[in-house]
Design a protein around this nucleic acid. Sequence first.
DNA 1: TAGATTGTTAATCGATTAACAATC
DNA 2: TAGATTGTTAATCGATTAACAATC
Lengths: 212, 212
Amino acid sequence: MQDNKISDAVIRRLPKYYRYLSELEAAGVERISSSRMSKEMNLNASQIRRDLNCFGGFGQQGYGYQVLRLKQEIMKILGIGNAYKVIVVGAGNIGQALLKYKNFTNEGYNIVAVFDADEKMIGKNINGITVRPMSALPEFFAVNMIDIGIIAVPKPYAQKTADELVVLGVRAIWNFAPLDVEVRRGISVENVHLSDSLYVLSYHMRENDENH
Amino acid sequence: MQDNKISDAVIRRLPKYYRYLSELEAAGVERISSSRMSKEMNLNASQIRRDLNCFGGFGQQGYGYQVLRLKQEIMKILGIGNAYKVIVVGAGNIGQALLKYKNFTNEGYNIVAVFDADEKMIGKNINGITVRPMSALPEFFAVNMIDIGIIAVPKPYAQKTADELVVLGVRAIWNFAPLDVEVRRGISVENVHLSDSLYVLSYHMRENDENH
DNA sequence: TAGATTGTTAATCGATTAACAATC
DNA sequence: TAGATTGTTAATCGATTAACAATC
């Protein structure tokens, strides 16, 4: 199919296509052309066709793309709906919010355990999942294959947690601590920096002021 | 100072500089060169100097940059530490997590009220802030200048909420609902799509598999 | 067949990197 | 002054966009 390294810019547009196609599907739309997508998504039509062609010829000349087919292809590319096992480390605000968020589970990202360092949290039940002590991590990994580890611990513990998860055999890390965690080649990481987004927002807010 | 439209790529690197400089400051480092920054941040040194020069000549030949000065300049550019008034609409998982998150307050983004549509939530106290009914929004805006509105409502209500906030006079919208809200020119928006980040993570995880 | 729209090549644009003169 | 490092111009690279032949 593909192989010559697809650029990050392309990969990061795929979720937007997925969201848009889901809307179309929900609205009962069967086919879509790159030009209509282009208008509704505020992207260039060439770019859309080029992006999709990185992964295969999903369209048909004179017709466009089948919404359902295209959506499923993108899901396959991104790996949505594959039943991953996920654990959360850190049962604070962010950890709890993620545990309670239904959408991830619906798409195959199943949170199967939570761990926390705080004695007082151990044994608590959050959305049907019991908080385990950090010390229970190794034995848990010994009997469960875990795909994704979510880091929701305070900044000073984030890198150490990442290191431990990698040693224990996690395939990917989704990090919510406000620093970029480093991992060895072969392990995937996404560092989510909510505050970065807030700063960019406040930059633009001020910029709007200047040009009144 | 500047004016010829600075690219989004540059703006989005500023928070990284800010984070890095905060680390240096905490470590007691007084001066920093672009080449050391380059190594430690995995960026090109020319790029760093070029980025910073979009906003002014903060460095000194033969010396480098003063950590404290540079950090403060970036804070000024991004508008960090300015005492903004923020409200949250939606007191669900995400809304509550944001309310409880201390770091934003520390940097001047003060959450002053929460609103929710659910009768049962009204009057509850979350981190010292009482949940108000949605119907109280107009009167609240009548007596409070609000800078930023955080949207943490379910997807079907997100655009409507955005529209209302804009009419009431918000300057910026930080949206956590899983769709891009549209606003008129002059209003800033940041759409945070957590799941997009998860999809990209799962893409890379699969990609790692293929190249075993 | 005529019309529509893709897949893909070629052109353009912008962002990144290299190089170096200016200067502390 | 000599050394270091910036600010900035020039070169390179990659991503976006335009154009169009292929084809349904």
